[in-house]
């Protein structure tokens, strides 16, 4: 899990206590995946159990400091060297919704696509505003934002692609279902006019 490896990677820089680790994690990832301090301490105790970190005593204020072990360093090196697996695709509500929209008769698929595209672009605008504000020193945060931006962009591209496929299918008159959708889209256009 990425919290475990993330905390280990931070401890490779210097020994730290729980609150410090949480702050360092969040400043790198821009609080995109907030951690509670309980998660940090649970993770630290598992890392200690597995011999990847060890206690390094207490600071003046009594905080329990952890430091990475050689086995922990090896684990971090291994993590960075190994690509993240794709795994099974997560169940994607949008893909399922569109699959249903083209299956069930009478759904205005282009309207479904457009509603999603507008919503995703709004999210993309929000990420971009955050990016515009990020300074050059926020490289880690800025890269995390880029990941959200590219994700949202991929979704919009897929929606564009769906719309083009639908338009082509309607032109070719492949099925009565798709012809029915075209009619309802034309009616919607008339109403908008």
């Amino acid at each position: 899990m990425s919290i475990r490896q993330g905390l280990l990677a931070l401890l490779e820089q210097e020994p730290m206590y729980g609150y410090q680790l949480r702050a360092a994690f969040e400043s790198s990832t821009g609080a995109t995946w907030p951690l509670n301090v309980g998660q940090v301490y649970t993770t630290l105790s598992r890392l200690e159990r597995d011999g990847l970190v060890e206690s390094a005593g207490h600071d003046d204020e009594g905080h329990g400091i952890y430091r990475i072990t050689p086995a922990g360093r090896a684990e971090v090196a291994d993590w960075f060297a190994t690509p993240v697996g794709r795994g099974t695709p997560p169940r994607d509500e949008l893909a399922i919704k569109l699959a249903m929209a083209v299956t069930v008769p009478g759904v205005d698929v282009r309207a479904v696509v457009q509603a999603q595209r507008t919503a995703t672009l709004r999210a993309l605008q929000d990420y971009t505003r955050l990016k515009a504000r990020a300074t050059d020193s926020d490289l880690a945060w800025s890269l995390v934002l880029d990941s959200l931006v590219f994700d949202a962009e991929a979704e919009v591209r897929w929606l564009d692609h769906c719309e083009a496929r639908l338009a082509r299918a309607a032109r070719d008159g492949q099925s009565t279902g798709e012809q029915r959708q075209t009619v309802s889209v034309h009616q919607a256009d008339e109403v908008r006019r």
Partner: peptide
């Protein structure tokens, strides 16, 4: 979309 997102408003 990534570039359009720099705008205040996106029209389709």
């Amino acid at each position: 979309a990534r570039h359009a997102a720099w705008a205040d408003r996106v029209v389709f």
